[in-house]
Structure formats: structure tokens, C-alpha cells
Nucleic acid binder design. Sequence first.
DNA 1: GTCTATAGCTGGATAGAC
DNA 2: GTCTATCCAGCTATAGAC
Lengths: 198, 198
Amino acid sequence: MPTTSAQPDRRTAILETAAQLFAQQGINGTTVRDIADRVGMLSGSLYHHFPSKDAMVEAILNEYVDAILARYRAVAAEVADPRERLDRLIHVSIETAFAHPYATEIYQANAPQLAETGSAALREGARSIQQTWLSTIKDGVAAGELRADVEPNVFYRMLRDALWLSVRWYRPRRAGYSVQKLADDCTAIFLEGFTLRD
Amino acid sequence: MPTTSAQPDRRTAILETAAQLFAQQGINGTTVRDIADRVGMLSGSLYHHFPSKDAMVEAILNEYVDAILARYRAVAAEVADPRERLDRLIHVSIETAFAHPYATEIYQANAPQLAETGSAALREGARSIQQTWLSTIKDGVAAGELRADVEPNVFYRMLRDALWLSVRWYRPRRAGYSVQKLADDCTAIFLEGFTLRD
DNA sequence: GTCTATAGCTGGATAGAC
DNA sequence: GTCTATCCAGCTATAGAC
């Protein structure tokens, strides 16, 4: 049995610390010394675990994208109706965002660059995420459940930015419930609109 | 009459080039040499016009925030009804975003840090912008025109992120009209919702 | 697996000639 | 107002002892 250590994995500890700093100070704004200091080692020692600083970014984002796609697959398997599936996608996305707040911030802050310089695996994951949303939205429009006068792409991008960036400003008081409420609010706004109904 | 030069202002040229690079590569990812190269001078010469790289960022964002607030004041003077004022704020914000796309990207990408490290003038401007939105939304709720079951703050932040970040992905085909359409779509989504009405 | 020590670069910024 | 030349701090990454 390989690596059955009960001790907290060093590699994981480094990645968590790095993710927090990358999110707070930016990738360029964080030095390998910053990371090493927080973990309690010297910067040179980091290179026993990772070949480069960029490799840490890669590792953080790959795990993150995999976590998102796993949840999306579960939703796709459970819910068929487009309108309801959209509702579920919003909920699991917000849950994932607050389960991985640092990775979410890093991903969103660097999305423009990652589209060009990211690894092939990462770009494929991003494409898959987008595809999940767009096909669901298009199905909803085709089924007559969603508006046809706004392009699916426009709706998707606005929803995406509002959704994922909520980790920047929303502070859940108790884990779980209040994140649920945020997801409910997001669904209410984007699907029903903010104008009061009669 | 001071500085009636018909030649394009050097200082302005530097700021426009810097803004573009800051937006595309990030502030930390852009060197003073990058900026100087594009302008067609050597990096040392930049320091005749600005005391530091940070001063360029400051200048870009101060002009930008002033431009936003000027438009918001015009809207406040013109429109009294909260629901309609919200509609107008969305429209002028998207117009401003596409009139200053680089500054918009810089501002949004660095909003978390600017709240701490930004100049007093900048923080005051940010507060004023937020106040404009929040008071309008609260007036709408009080008037019974807008939903009371979603906190104004939650609605504001989601609208804000969706709105300003549209410069990251939306490419207007012809200046003017298509930006109008985007603003219309944004109003439709946030005020009416994406669900089809009967 | 971590430390010591440092190589090798690149960054922002400056001084003074022109 | 721009250039030449350069300082020096800070960065990533490496080599080898322990």
C-alpha cells in the first residue's frame, strides 16, 4: 500500500497555502518565499515537491476543474428538465465555489490568460464546463421554458461572472445554510428577475 | 493659454498604452520596459512623466472613476423613478465600460487589492459608485417595484460583476448599436429574469 | 526531505549627458 | 524631453551538504 500516511500530506499543505496566497495577492504578486514561509520551510525545499511555481498553479486548477466537472456530471445524470437542471447547476456551482474559494478566485482572476497559456487539460476542462451550461440553456430555449430574445451565450456569461465571483464578496455566516440562500437568490434573480411580480 | 498643443499629448499616449498592457497582462505582469517599448521610448524616459509605475495605475483609475461618476450624476438628475433609474444606470454603465474597456478590466481585476491599497480619492469614488446603486435599489424595494426577498446588496454585487465584466468577453460588431443591445439584454435578465413569461 | 548558499536574471528606479 | 548607463533589490531556480 503506497502512501498511507496519516500525517497531513506535505504536498497538500503546500498547495493549500499557495492557493490562499495566489488568491489574495495574485500569482505574480506571490513569491515562492511567501509560500515557503507560511508552510514553515525554506523556498528551496519547495522544489522537492514541485518543479516550478507554475506547476503549483497547474495542480491547484486541475484539481479544481475536476471537482466542478464531477458535480456537473452528477447533475446531468439526475435531472432531465432544462429549467430544473439550470437551477441545480447554479446550486452546485455556488457550493463548489465556496468549497474551493481560493481556487475559484485564482481561476476567475486569470481566466483570460489561462485560455492562452494554460495546459491542454485545463483548456479542455474549461471547454467542457462551458458546454455543460450552454447546452442546458439551449435545451431550455428550445423547450420553450427560457427566453429566446436573449442569446444563450450572453445569458451564460453574465450568470457565470455573477455566480463564481460571489466568493469575492459573500461571507457565509454558518457553513451550508447561508450558501444555500445565496444560491436561491442567484436562481431567483437570473430566472425570475428582480422586478416584483403581481 | 497653456498647453494648446495640437500634437497628441505624450502623457495621454503613455497612459493609453499602459492601460492596454495592464488590462491584457496584469499590472504585475507588465514592466515599465514593455510600456516604453510600445510608446517608442526608453523606460527611464517614462519617469519624466510619472514618478512611478503605480502613479500610472492611479492616473488611469482616477480618470475612469470620475468618468463613471459624471454619468451617474446625470442619470440621477434626469430620472426619478427607481425602476427606470436602475435601467438607465445599467445602460450608462455598459456604455462607460465599452468606452473605457482597459480601465474597466484593470479596475475589476484589482478591485480586492484597491480597496486596501488604493488612494483615498479612489476609495471614495468606489464608495460613491456603490452608494448610487444601493440607494436606487433600496428606493425601488421601498416603492414596491422591486423584490424584497433578495437583499439589495446581493442583487447589486451580482449585477455589478455581470455588468462590468462584459468587457472581458463581449465584442461589439459596430460601435454603439450592439452595445445598446447588450445593455438591453442585461436589463432584461436582471429585471425580468430569463424564464419565459406566459 | 530540508537546509545552506548562491547563481542568474529581471524588475523598478535614478543620475547626469545631451 | 529623451537617452545612456547603471544601481540594487528581489525573484525563480539549482547544487550539494546533511
